[in-house]
Design a protein around this nucleic acid. Structure first.
Lengths: 156, 156
DNA sequence: TATTGTTATACTCTATAACTATA
DNA sequence: TATAGTTATAGAGTATAACAATA
């Protein structure tokens, strides 16, 4: 069997391609995928601790320090005192971050449109359904976790 | 729109998952995905130069030095004099490598079966066809190039 | 002058450990 | 005694530049 006939190979290849493209298009906004992941998790329930964020994104809390530092420097989050634990920070989104998240959503929409361009609406729904079932069977967390820390490609 | 409803997100998530799993299952054979990629390219037309292999796998020739070193140490390839260019090496598979490639194919088959378990035969064909079209439209090289250098996961 | 293989170097990421302040 | 955040350090990976041999 040819390597490129295997669905697992195609999945891996396409997954990396899409992640790279997303990192590239996110870069002009000053974000890496991991930053986007943090902001996304804060969108609904603001005030998560860094440890909670680290668990959600499957990174070590040491890494989360740097990510929150980056976002704080850009004025996208603030470290507020945590109402229930004086050791922790309640990381909160700023208005600027909410604006930026809308731009990031546009980026994602545009990427989805580009990638799925060869498929009609019915086929897109088919693909999404199949991927959903496979992802669920693989036990992948439905929320977030794109395998972060992917930087924009150097040759893009 | 929820993040996990986007096909691009599912693709990225699944792609990384599959690549990680493949790296994990390849590790007991003493190979990383990049090694497997090199061996695969040598399977048909043995005698490629390191530079040719580097181009095919989209890595720098400096990196290929180390990969070929690894494979040579394990007795999977040999550096033969290149018949047409005395600067280059003709990298050739050994019989041991051909045996190992069959084992690696079994690993890939088993992984494909595990990942696609929730789909019946018709759905698997559907998925493969859709992925093929998307990959082709994205301009992904049909041969190889799984976004190599992925190591087995530490927490696997 | 350009290219193949090689080595050395710097830079980035990740992982681990340790420290502080709280709990 | 354990946990949240932080910092420092070491390791692995990648990228760049340079070199010798050959084209």
């Amino acid at each position: 069997m040819q390597l490129d006939d295997r669905s697992v190979f195609l999945l891996s290849q396409l997954g990396h391609h899409v992640a790279d493209r997303f990192a590239d298009e996110l870069a002009p906004l000053g974000l890496r995928p991991a930053h986007f992941g943090v902001l996304t998790h804060l969108r609904d329930g603001s005030g998560l601790s860094q440890q909670q964020l680290a668990d959600l994104l499957r990174v070590h809390r040491n890494v989360m320090v740097g990510l929150v530092d980056d976002l704080e420097t850009q004025g996208l989050v603030r470290r507020a005192p945590h109402p229930e634990d004086r050791r922790a920070h309640a990381v909160q989104l700023t208005g600027k971050a909410r604006t930026l998240l809308r731009e990031a959503a546009t980026v994602a929409d545009r990427l989805e449109e580009t990638v799925l361009a060869p498929l009609d609406d019915g086929e897109r729904a088919q693909l999404a359904a199949l991927l959903h079932r496979v992802a669920e069977h693989a036990g992948l967390p439905p929320g977030v976790h794109p395998a972060l820390n992917r930087r924009p490609s150097r040759r893009g």
